[in-house]
Deep mutational scan, measured.
Amino acid sequence: DKPVLAIQVLGTVKWFNVRNGYGFINRNDTKEDVFVHQTAIKRNNPRKFLRSVGDGETVEFDVVEGEKGAEATNVTGPGGVPVKGSRYAPNR
């Protein structure tokens, strides 16, 4: 398990590439950019086929120490709701 650095952090999605399945979230508290992989998205938009977060979307997440620095995990919308997802992700 990766060491946990912070829990229930709010941030804004800087960018997310649906095809490659990753992007970055900017933390509201430290203004640090945190890597996010599609496997870290815990509550996906049920209408979306692929797990994703949308550019500019506000999300809540935990921060863990990854191999290359801070990574987001347990990604949801604020308060644990499903994320909205990327407009580029296909609908079901």
Rank of each mutant, 00 (worst) to 15 (best):
S52V: 03
V59C: 05
K84E: 10
R87A: 12
G80N: 08
R92P: 07
T73A: 15
G77H: 05
K48N: 07
L50D: 04
G23A: 10
K84D: 06
V75S: 00
G77V: 05
H37L: 03
T58H: 10
N44H: 09
P90F: 10
P90V: 09
Q38H: 13
R92W: 10
N44C: 10
T73K: 13
V81M: 13
R87M: 12
P78Q: 07
G80E: 04
N44R: 08
N44K: 10
I41N: 06
V59N: 00
D55I: 12
E57K: 04
R51Q: 08
V64P: 01
N91A: 12
V53T: 02
G79S: 10
Y88A: 06
V53K: 02
V83N: 01
R51L: 05
W15L: 06
P82D: 08
V64L: 09
E67G: 11
V59I: 04
E57A: 01
Y88R: 09
T73S: 14
A89T: 07
P90H: 11
G56L: 03
G54N: 09
V64F: 04
R51H: 08
G69Y: 04
N45S: 07
P78M: 07
E67F: 13
E71N: 06
N17Y: 14
D55Q: 15
Y88Q: 07
E65Y: 13
T76I: 01
E71H: 11
V36A: 13
T76Q: 08
N45W: 03
D33G: 11
N91D: 14
S86I: 04
V53S: 01
R92L: 11
A72N: 03
R92E: 08
D62W: 00
P82G: 04
G79Q: 10
A72Y: 01
F61N: 01
V63G: 01
G77W: 05
A72D: 00
E65T: 11
G80T: 03
T76H: 03
F49R: 15
R51F: 05
Y22C: 15
I25V: 13
T30P: 02
V59Y: 00
N17S: 09
P90L: 09
T58M: 12
T58E: 11
E60K: 07
G23C: 08
E57R: 02
V34G: 03
G80F: 02
N26S: 11
I25T: 13
N74C: 03
L10M: 12
L10F: 05
V64R: 07
T76V: 07
G85R: 00
R47F: 12
G56I: 01
S86F: 05
T58L: 14
L50P: 07
F49M: 15
G77K: 05
T58Q: 14
K48Y: 04
G66S: 12
A72E: 00
N74E: 05
K68I: 07
D55T: 14
N17I: 11
T73C: 14
N44V: 08
V83L: 06
G80S: 03
T58C: 11
Y88P: 06
V18D: 13
P90R: 15
T73W: 14
A89S: 10
L50C: 12
G56F: 04
V64A: 05
G54L: 08
A72S: 02
G85K: 00
N45C: 08
V81I: 14
P46Y: 05
T58Y: 06
S86K: 07
E65R: 15
K31W: 06
N74M: 01
N45T: 05
E57D: 03
A70D: 09
T73G: 08
E71I: 13
N45F: 01
V64T: 06
G79A: 10
V83D: 02
K68P: 05
R92H: 12
G79R: 12
R47S: 14
N28D: 12
K48M: 06
V18F: 08
R87K: 14
E57C: 00
G54D: 13
V63Q: 03
N91I: 11
G21R: 06
E67Q: 15
R87W: 09
Y88L: 07
R92I: 12
E60Y: 06
P46E: 08
N91R: 12
E60R: 11
V83I: 06
E67N: 13
S52W: 00
R87S: 11
D62P: 00
N74H: 06
N91P: 12
F49K: 15
D62C: 06
V75Y: 01
V64N: 02
D55Y: 09
G23S: 11
T73R: 15
N91K: 12
G54Q: 11
D1H: 11
A89Y: 04
V63Y: 01
T30S: 13
T58W: 05
N91H: 10
D55A: 15
V36G: 04
P46V: 07
V18I: 10
V34A: 15
Y88D: 06
F61Q: 03
N74T: 01
E57I: 01
T76K: 05
F61E: 02
N28T: 09
E65N: 12
G80Q: 06
K48A: 06
S86C: 06
